[in-house]
Simulated assay, not measured.
Amino acid sequence: MGGVSERADPHTPIRAGIPEHGRVPKYYAVKARVEVLIADLGEGGLLPTERELAADFGVARETVRQALRELLIQGRVRRKGRGTVVAEPKLVQPLSTASYTEGVRQQGRVPGRHLVGLERLHADVALAAELRLEAGAPVWHMERVLLADDERVGLESTYLAVARVPHLERDFAPDASFYAFLRERLGVEPTVVDERIETVLATPREALLIGTPPALPMLLLHRSSSDAEGRPLERVRSLYRGDRFSFTVRLSRP
């Protein structure tokens, strides 16, 4: 293959996102060429090495490395051993009152969770206000790694009043669906849910638990839910891998 042109060809995908008067960075042109290769290889296909791609495209290995880094962040490729393969499609999680378990199962994947810790804390002023408790009231904090087909894809922290579930440590299997437990054992489930989404970088501890580089962008969801009687049920902080998740919501005009 020849060297990579620095100017956008209007008939190639390289032009997408480039200003009319702009010059295409070499890494971006390489990225577009690799995206064509990804489409040809299909899911699980092994990409050539950085050295081979650099030779084929006539660019430096650092240019190839930068292109692959962006594709890795976008979830188009993933590392496998010492190589790089075409990644499977992202998990598409609906924003709804449904649980993580239900969303993953709908996509034909096997959900799972690994307990990091379950502890009793005293609610600070902000948490107490959200759960309508007195400051200092006992609350559960449950932290779990989220799995999909045994792949670590997120980290979830759940807070709820001890008064609502006094024996959570005894009655709940931490690898199971918490919403199913609330519904089947206590007869309650979230009816009204407020969620806020933002992009963040994981802390070193979070990155270690999820098994990702600290520089990988994450999707952070803040969820507060109430039961059918309007009583606060939980506050949840969920961190999802940006390269493995996207979210959807269906809106309709009343």
Rank of each mutant, 00 (worst) to 15 (best):
H167C: 11
Y159K: 12
A207L: 01
Y159M: 11
A148N: 08
V162I: 12
Y159L: 13
T158N: 14
E169W: 06
P213V: 08
V200N: 00
V165N: 05
L209S: 06
T191W: 11
V139T: 03
T199V: 12
P213L: 06
R205W: 01
G211W: 00
Y179S: 11
V162T: 14
E189P: 01
E189Y: 06
L146Q: 10
T212V: 15
P190A: 06
E169V: 08
L146I: 07
V162A: 14
L146F: 04
R144K: 09
G211T: 09
G187V: 02
I197A: 06
H167M: 10
D171E: 14
T212R: 13
A148G: 10
L186Y: 08
D194V: 05
T212L: 10
A176P: 03
E151W: 00
R164Q: 12
E156L: 13
R205L: 10
V193F: 00
A202R: 07
H141C: 11
P204A: 04
E184N: 14
V193Q: 07
R183K: 12
T199P: 00
T158L: 15
E184W: 00
V162D: 04
R152S: 12
W140V: 12
P138M: 06
A161D: 02
Y179A: 10
L182R: 03
E195P: 04
V200H: 02
I197Y: 03
V188T: 09
A180F: 07
V193D: 00
E198T: 14
R164D: 07
D171H: 06
V145I: 14
E184R: 14
T199M: 05
A173V: 13
L182S: 05
P166C: 05
E195A: 10
A161F: 01
A163C: 09
S177H: 03
E198M: 08
R170W: 07
D194I: 03
